[in-house]
Design a protein around this nucleic acid. Structure first.
Length: 878
DNA sequence: CGATCCCGCCACATT
DNA sequence: AATGTGGCGGGATCG
């Protein structure tokens, strides 16, 4: 069997080679039809020369034999393959393997031969790492399974993790589409960003702690348990985004685990993650229950994932000897930095020019679908193939939908993860219960393509237009430079963060990207240097070479004091704070604003959240507010705990401390305030600094997608008025009619290209557009529903504005031109209170998260997404 | 004996 | 109901 594969595949090492193959893809490109899944019946791949068919047959015939043999006796023989095959090819084949991959000894007959890792290699060998954009390769699970001689179940294991990295996507039942590694770097980048938000602290914490102290997961959790309840909410909220359907079971899916696992690597300084730590982190909520069995299961899954990742050349197995002893671990050997796309050949210089060149070529015409759902815009085939709407719906049920969902899920997941992490962190810190709002992440996957098409996308605005712009934080930078490979956070160029300032003022900039540092901790924050902010243009960021990143990775053990090359500033900060890496020391202050705080999960912004905020502000605006909020969440006790924790941590921290110092910073601006610019005159935007309320996240690099809970406030009122949140995020969620926004729900929108001048407002429909009634339904309506109001100008300037691209697909996010004041109508007052709460409120307050989480019962699964949504919605006051 | 992880049952999801 | 997916964990194998 192998032989066959190989022959086709060509070089085995998928990684290296680029587009080697040929094989079947061509057959597959039936782009035009949206998919009606032809289903297996005929494989779309008509391989002309169809080696496959033959192969299949052979394989099918052979494989069984082989297996049997192996099982029976062959354990020993190293060469089985050759024997079996007898064919000359086999030899080559074997050789090839060795040369290319070899981590495994493939020779081992028995079990090893069947290993998932090897299987995955075979699988990967069949497809080109960098397929031509034009062709689509479809993968038939059945076919592959037969060819590789394994049960389909195993293929799922592989495909699921590949899907998590966007190397493939599900097209239809039994069919997956091979994308190759083109977007891998993008995906990784996104994961990294997301991971930092979510896991940055955690990882640091774990790594440090464990080594130094033992980190007792259980204990903490228990303690925190009450708090933990909140989590669920978060999760839900996230989930919402995804389409309603399919969450349940899939939530846990290997796919997500895989992403999380990858995130851990990307976040880890050392780039080494031990299985047990990963398992602990990934277990998430449910932890309180005794895990042992759970832990075991988790570990098993991690092995599965690790095998695939290993085959992809992203990680390798290593052993970490810690105090405790020697533990199995995996080291990330994949790209560390994602300046654009690492893998991609074409890359644009990381520096300032983001988009332009590459993208276009690559991308098919960028489509903007009203629905905005498709994430994979990139694939031209997809886009083109699918008619935006009508088809889409149909499709929804079909192949497409799954995809979308998945992506959605993905997003949601990400968010969830973040939430979880936060909570954990919080727990660790012992913050009072807080629900952290889900941070958002944009998913990248597609983004690159999407972005590409938009040349102008770059936000000149920021740079040019708003020279003065005071703030930018990492986010801004990110946002601004979608394409920027940007050194990701680490670089120096980052915006500064002013802890004290509560708001960010944008003088006139039409557009804001708010992105707070969502990543609370992440390196970004660290990056931020205070001074730089305003000035630093995207360029600066761009400037940062990828190399820096590497460094980071390289020096694993840094004393806290020593800033990494990359992030000197950040580190420094961290250091200071770092004493207590996680701990936030915040003076407690009575916090008036959001009552939410009082409320269990929601309101409270935990220290963590605050951290997230770090906004980089050029101007110190309202430190006060920030302080308040920030402080408030923290309870004295919590603080204490923190302190406690800290101490132990400190020492350890030095080692692997990730730059999360951010977390430390207690004060963050709660909101970003945007002054009304000409365009916006009427509106003020507030973005909550808090994660919960409004974490803004930028899409990973390229796409500037933001998920932000936005608040639009009348300028005048601003002071008085807190905010209104856009529910958008939840769109997918049960649509909560206007009033109830899930507090947490962040809006996501990505604006791929914004003209610098044109101001864009993004809000949920409910909020903004008066007319829009809250649509109760998610999916179907969404497409239609979401009205985008783009000013013509915008439209032009930004050829592509994608809504919701990544995250919230269907949701009715409306882009409004600022000009349209109509939205204003919201009576802020009335709304305000409720929303306000909602805004702050964390989902935690809602249903009993625990219950569902815990019960693994089937029921829960089913209910999960939906219920969650409902719950959330219900909670919303309005 | 602990680390790995194959295998495939079977629940859940989708057709 | 049939079939696709994929969670899950027993228990075999490896080291």
């Amino acid at each position: 069997e192998n032989i066959f594969d190989r022959s086709r595949m060509a070089p085995k090492t998928p990684i290296k080679n680029e587009p080697v193959d040929l094989s079947k893809q061509k057959g597959c490109t039936p782009e035009r039809n949206p998919i009606t899944p032809v289903k297996l019946t005929d494989r779309p791949q008509p391989d002309p020369w169809t080696p496959t068919a033959n192969l299949k047959i052979l394989v099918s015939a052979a494989s069984p034999d082989m297996r049997d043999r192996e099982k029976k006796k062959e354990l020993f023989r190293p060469i089985e393959n050759s024997e079996q095959s007898d064919t000359p090819d086999s030899l080559q084949y074997d050789i090839v393997d060795d040369s290319t991959v070899d981590e495994f000894e493939k020779q081992r007959p028995s079990r090893k031969q069947k290993s998932l890792g090897l299987l995955c290699q075979k699988f990967l060998a069949r497809y080109p790492s960098y397929p031509l954009s034009t062709e689509k390769t479809t993968i038939s699970l059945d076919e592959v399974a037969s060819i590789l001689g394994v049960e389909r179940r195993r293929i799922y294991d592989i495909v699921n993790v590949l899907e998590s990295l966007h190397l493939v996507s599900r097209v239809a039942k039994n069919q997956y589409c091979w994308h190759g590694r083109h977007n891998l770097s993008q995906t990784l980048k996104t994961l990294q960003e997301a991971g930092e938000l979510q896991y940055g602290e955690l990882m640091t914490f774990f790594q440090q702690k464990e080594q130094d102290l033992e980190y007792r997961f259980g204990e903490r959790k228990k303690e925190t348990i009450p708090d933990t309840q909140d989590r669920p909410l978060l999760d839900f909220s996230e989930a919402d985004c995804t389409s309603a359907s399919a969450n349940s079971r899939k939530d846990k899916s290997l796919r997500i685990m895989s992403q999380k696992f990858v995130m851990l690597f990307l976040v880890s300084k050392t780039k080494i993650v031990t299985l047990d730590i990963a398992a602990k982190i990934l277990i998430e909520e449910t932890q309180d229950t005794v895990d042992h069995s759970k832990f075991k299961t988790k570990v098993r899954r991690l092995y599965d994932i690790a095998n695939v990742l290993t085959s992809l050349g992203l990680i390798k197995k290593v052993h970490v000897t810690e105090e405790r002893g020697r533990k199995p671990a995996f080291k990330w050997i994949g790209p560390v930095e994602f300046p654009g796309k690492t893998d991609e050949p074409r890359g644009h210089s990381p520096t300032s020019d983001p988009l332009p060149q590459t993208q276009r070529g690559v991308c098919a015409p960028y489509q903007i679908c009203p629905t905005g759902k498709q994430r994979f815009t990139r694939h031209a085939s997809f886009n083109s193939a699918q008619p935006c709407e009508g088809t889409r719906r149909k499709v929804s049920s079909e192949p497409n939908s799954p995809r979308q969902e998945r992506q959605d899920e993905y997003h949601s997941k990400m968010i969830n993860l973040a939430a979880v992490c936060r909570q954990k962190i919080e727990e660790d810190t012992r913050n009072p219960s807080m629900a952290s709002p889900p941070s958002l992440l944009a998913l990248p996957g597609d983004s690159d393509f999407c972005v590409n098409p938009l040349p102008q996308t770059v936000f000149p605005v920021v740079q040019t237009d708003v020279p003065n712009l005071s703030l930018l934080n990492g986010v801004s930078s990110q946002a601004l430079h979608p394409s920027m490979p940007a050194a990701s956070k680490t670089e120096n160029g980052k915006p500064t963060l002013l802890p004290s300032q509560p708001f960010l003022c944008f003088p006139s900039s039409p557009l804001f990207m708010l992105c707070s540092s969502l990543q609370e901790n992440n390196s970004r924050d660290t990056l931020l240097t205070t001074g730089e902010v305003g000035s630093r243009s995207a360029e600066a960021q761009a400037a940062v070479p990828p190399a820096a990143c590497q460094k980071r990775s390289s020096h694993k053990c840094m004393s806290p004091s020593a800033p990494a090359d990359e992030e000197p500033a950040a580190k420094k900060q961290t250091v200071e704070h770092s004493d207590v890496p996680l701990s936030l020391v915040v003076p407690k202050k009575p916090f008036e604003s959001p009552k939410a705080e009082s409320t269990p999960g929601s309101g409270c912004t935990s220290a963590v959240h605050l951290e997230d905020f770090h906004l980089d502000l050029a101007s110190p605006a309202a430190p006060e507010a920030a302080d308040k909020e920030s402080t408030k969440p923290l309870d004295s006790r919590e603080q204490e705990k923190w302190s406690q924790n800290k101490e132990p941590d400190e020492p350890s921290a030095g080692k692997e401390h990730i730059s999360k110092e951010n977390a430390n910073q207690p004060f963050l601006p709660q909101y970003l305030y945007v002054q009304p610019t000409a365009g916006l005159s009427s509106f003020n935007f507030l973005f909550s600094a808090n994660q919960a309320s409004g974490a803004v996240s930028l899409a990973a690099s390229q796409l500037p997608s933001l998920s932000v809970p936005c608040v639009v406030v009348p300028s005048a009122a601003l002071a008085s008025f807190p905010v209104i949140c856009s529910p958008t995020v939840t769109s997918s969620l049960s649509p909560v009619p206007d009033g109830s926004f899930t507090a947490t729900a962040p809006m996501n929108f990505s604006v791929s290209g914004l003209a610098s001048t044109t101001p864009i407002f993004i809000g949920t429909t409910a909020v903004v557009t008066p007319k829009v009634s809250p649509t109760p339904l998610m999916d179907p309506q969404q497409p239609a529903h979401p009205a985008l109001h783009l000013s013509p100008v915008l439209a032009r300037s930004c050829s592509a504005v994608k809504l919701d691209s990544p995250v919230c697909v269907g949701h009715p996010v409306t882009l409004l031109k600022l000009q349209q004041p109509s939205s204003a109508p919201l009576t802020p007052k009335s709304i305000r209170p409720a929303r306000h709460e909602a805004f702050f409120k964390t989902p935690g307050s809602l249903g009993d998260p625990i219950a569902w989480k815990k019960n693994e019962g089937n029921q829960t699964r089913n209910a999960s997404s939906v219920q969650r949504r409902l719950e959330i919605s219900s909670t919303s006051p309005d």
